[in-house]
Amino acid sequence: MSLITVDSLTVQFDTDEGRITAVEDVSFAVAPGEILGLVGESGSGKSVTAKSLMRLNSDNARYAAQSRVVLHLDDRKVDVLSLRTGREMQIVRGGAISMIFQEPMASFAPAITIGDQMVEQLVLHRRISEKEAARVSIEMLERVGISDAAKRFGQYAFELSGGMRQRAMIAMALSTRPRLLIADEPTTALDVTIQAQVLDLMLELKQKVGAAILLITHDLGVVAEVAERIVVMYAGRKVEEARARDLFANPRHPYTQGLLGAVPKLGSSLEEKGRTRLSEIPGMVPNLKKPIEGCAFASRCPIATDLCRKVAPAVEAKALGHFVACHHAPREAIAA
């Protein structure tokens, strides 16, 4: 049983320059306690997809009629896209789902203390007294390894160090005991040593709290380290989905193959082959203002044919648990 299912999600934005299709017909599911990596470059629609789960896209976002996002709770199902009022949406905003952002400094209000923001959220979602909420908050800050938590509770974001802010943000996100934590590029702004600490912390807390994680990133190194399953997006479409192990060992979509080829590998470096260049994906991401005919990747794909340029490939299982949207991806026999 999935925790949350996304079915044929299509998100468009009305802008002055016309309607932009940011996400097109994307489906996936997150199981309870699972870590799912959502990978793609900027503009691939991964953030818009994730924000759809909390209805955080701006007001000019249009969700297609057939799109469904369903949250499966113990006692009920929530049809996220049909939620209307702010109160109704609390179930996915800070209730069952929490989100952490790339910039912890920017995601705390600058003139409100960390503690006030944590208490406010706890009182909203857990129906506890402010005093109790303060106790829980300080305890949570301690659990993420912030020393002198009671003092930090009364401080502002600008008074904390970068790593500490990141921890405080994780503490705040997990204090309401969400079932799903959406992490939007959580390590991108951090230096490598802090990155590792933050990832470890997220994993540790996930174990304790029992939350699933939707990890949005363009950093393949990060997903390789922590994700169990990976969804690769390109130009608003899902192009490949597989268990992390399978995806890295055997990428089947030419785009994924290109992405992995563009990552430097330790060992396979200069001494071995002389000065080999990292391979890159030629061309540019297509313009999303116009409807894309055929496969979105066709214009950059080394193996594209006329079929690719005319007919968009459907996402199909090419091996057990390995889904690819490509006309030319090899298919393995799948045991029934």
């Binding site: 955080l56 609390q90 905003r93 800070g94 989100m99 209000a109």
Partner: peptide, 11 residues
């Protein structure tokens, strides 16, 4: 920070 507050359910 306003988006973040919205994501925490404040409205």
């Amino acid at each position: 920070y306003v988006t973040a507050a919205t994501a925490r359910g404040i409205f």
